[in-house]
Design a protein around this nucleic acid. Structure first.
Lengths: 211, 211, 211, 211
DNA sequence: AATGAATGAGTCTTCATTCAT
DNA sequence: TATGAATGAAGACTCATTCAT
């Protein structure tokens, strides 16, 4: 079934050590390894060796896919941001005309996201060194933008009552963001259901949404 | 011929530049220098050399006052937290019986604080490496505790309407915290007055406070 | 740890884009690329990647034609030396019986050569690592040999007056060699015509050639 | 190497390992070690580890005295150049009014120097990477300047006959310089006395000095 | 109490070379 | 023949920490 004719007599065993992989896959694996290490050890403590080892490749291979250690960080951030935005957009869309459900959807995605990806959010968007480039700026604009659009639409539809849409969008995002910050977790772990309920209330009341 | 008593050349000359300062002052100066560098360069980029130079002492002196680099970080965090708590408590107290003003006071302190100490908050409470000890836990409990007490008191007084006090306290704190995160600032700088107004509204609505 | 099976899949497909060039041409192209990079970046800064890219082939191909990075260096040196020798011999020959013109011819070739091939001479014959083999020795013997023969012939013909032919040959070669060394160029760039004139005078006087 | 035995009362004996030395001495020792390694291995092959080991210090100590590997190279060059210039100046001065002896003195110093310091000259002034700064330019100007001044003075005194002083100075310097280039040495080692004699003749004839 | 020279483990990054296709 | 992904040894440089003075 596998290279019967044009292969080489390299078939002693069945299990073949695949050394080269499609570039996309390799890159993704490195990204995964980097993300895992950032979470486990923190950004500062993550070395290129950790990432390479995590992806099961030699150190040099890392540099075939990323220009530098800082480069992967940006890439992981970008990937995370894009996924998050996509989830938010989907949640808002699928709520149809129910403006309360849209808010709940944002809360759900925000919190769910944290549960699933743990502290990744904070690790990535916060402990980042000062030199974030346009790459990251763009990702953040996208993110906040989702909330701004939601509020604007809700107000236009007469469902929400918000004075300062842009600023409130940032505040609401802020409220979710960092909820699972390891900082709080240690001191007083939060119950997920209570958190969701409280956040829903906060969101609805803030935009003055009447059931 | 040299130091006969195994001490130091204590009296090299009679007139001698007094390089010795009270321990407390030295420590405070080092703390200030560390904080300044954390802000300016970020935690990861701050070296012991930076701190020592900033405090105008030799590197060795640093280790006379702190066990390690990680040690100052904790100390700076602790100091910052204590000051923040004190400000919040004062703002709440001075509002007397005006439960709306208490909320506003928290917002003011939270934002003012950021203005004054810039990104210190975020730098300290977020990019911290995973290994935070009980020291920091305690500081955070104090901080969240202020909000929890405020809500509890307000509810008891019949001024607020909050279902889940503890969780909501965390959320509200979260809303303030990170507002000035350099991350957002780069993308879309926030107007201070609008921010204050929006935050006040969010706080009041969230606890269902009726003017 | 890794098996080296020496033997290639000779016939992969029948129809195949002809990426194959005559071995001699490929080699020459690689040599050109290497020389160009040595000149542009210097020997130390030239990587196999640079050479391969310059020749428009993959890195692996480089190793089909040269055993190692050091190997090309030697090859480029050899090629350069041979060309230089040929030019000198021609210049001397075409001067016929004019022993002054023979000297001038050497000066011209020496300087012209530098102009044309720039610092190649120096780059190749000087910054070379210590481990030069018999290959290079041979090239240098040829080079110095040309001067020795010229002096010997001139003396035999009664045109020159030189006590120690062999040593003087080295000195004269030395005088030309390195004249365009970038080292001097930076400090005080030399005028080509004045250089030629001065060198001619030096050569003629040194061998005591009477116009 | 150095035993790192993590902490014993290592004071049995009287001879105490002097760890700290006067900065000047340390620097000089590092300079010596660097120079030795450049000579032995060549510039490209010399690592900071080699230099540190040669000076008997840890790698970090190296960076206490030099900013980078390139930095020592410049420093060694500078030191060598200064010494060389001083020797030339002295030789010319002590020849008094004997303009022939002045030329001989230069030859002597030039060749002697090579014997003493071996290939240092070439290694330093030739295989240097392209990025030489004003530091080195200055050293070279000094060096060539000595020859230019000698020729100018000799011509003014009516002892020499040289058309183009500046250019001839470079040529003469060139003649000496590189004579002991390891390149030639391998092929055909030169006899010191013959070399000196031939060089003297070349110098004297070139400036048309009449015994 | 203060100094700062010295240390060396730890990191990032480069690049010659190999080898499966 | 040709390719280029993968390798990993090597080397430059940093910086927390020690310690003799």
């Amino acid at each position: 079934m596998r290279q019967s004719v044009k292969g080489w007599p390299r078939s002693w065993h069945t299990h073949q050590v695949v050394r080269t992989k499609p570039a996309d896959q390799r890159r993704e694996e490195l990204l995964d390894a980097a993300q895992a290490s950032f979470l486990e050890r923190g950004i500062a403590a993550t070395t290129v060796d950790h990432i390479a080892a995590g992806a099961g490749v030699a150190k040099g291979t890392f540099y075939l896919y990323f220009r530098s250690r800082a480069d992967v960080l940006t890439a992981v951030q970008r990937r995370y941001g894009d996924r998050f935005v996509a989830q938010l957009v989907a949640a808002i869309a699928e709520a149809g005309d129910d403006w309360g459900a849209k808010l709940d959807g944002c809360v759900r995605v925000g919190l769910q996201n944290h549960q699933v990806e743990r502290a990744l959010h904070d690790v990535l968007f916060i402990s980042a060194p000062p030199e974030r480039g346009p790459e990251l700026d763009h990702a953040l604009d996208d993110l906040i933008g989702v909330f701004q659009r939601l509020l604007a639409d809700g107000v236009a539809a007469g469902a929400y009552d918000v004075d300062d849409i842009d600023t409130t969008a940032v505040l609401l995002f802020n409220t979710l963001h960092g909820v699972f910050n390891p900082i709080w977790l240690g001191a007083s772990p939060l119950d997920e259901d209570r958190l969701t309920a409280a956040a829903r209330t906060l969101f609805r009341r803030t935009v003055n949404y009447q059931a």
